[in-house]
Amino acid sequence: MGRVSTKVIIVTGAAAGLGAAIAKRLTEEGATVIRTDIAAGEGIIRQDVADEAGWKALIAETMAKHGRIDGLVNNAGISSSKSPMDPEGAELEDWRRINTVNVESVFLGCKYAMPAIAKGGGGAIVNMSSIGALVPTPFIAAYGASKAAVAQFTRSLALHCCEKNYAIRCNSVHPGQVRTPMHDVLIARTAAEHGISAEDAAQAFLTKVPMKTWQEAVDIANAVLFLVSDEARFITGTAVIVDGGMSLTN
């Protein structure tokens, strides 16, 4: 018996990076995982998480096919834009795009999954936030603000579910520095902006992590697994920080 056997769990942004690792780990522990992504991939349902109609359709299709939804992992997100990403240079269009993909999508996913999860007797929602919600991120201002919004919304959602007796636990997860395709883009950009090699830029990021090792995607996947499993049955409305100590020193 896996730790999430019999559970039907939706994971967004599951084609690569954290989402792929989360989907794999949940599958290993027995869950039926519905993988969605805006990119194509094997076993991936195409979904633009910022599209409201798409969420309604996804929830309806999942209920029709599996009869229940026990969990939702709102993992899809973006961090970069074409314009500068500091507060002064950022363009409104890019600010809006990052907040649309990172925040509106989480709202929509929770809004439409909540009734379905409640109908089956409850479950868990995990929203992917970031260390960027905990420490200032002047070099990616919109991203940090969007992830702080996710963490705050998650706490409201948790209390709403308690007050409605939905038995749905809601928590945010805050990774530090995980080498994913998204992180590679950030490093490449930092290297270009400072005229240094990608390797030097990566090392500069790594010096910010007290444990001095990159996190693996599976480190985050394991935290998500714990939170969606029944072992975490009393944990709701909180933030789980998996960052190798980075939030202690930055």
Partner: peptide
Amino acid sequence: AMLSGSPLIIDGA
């Protein structure tokens, strides 16, 4: 493996 220094809150919200 990468959880260190941070609090785990178990409080039913």
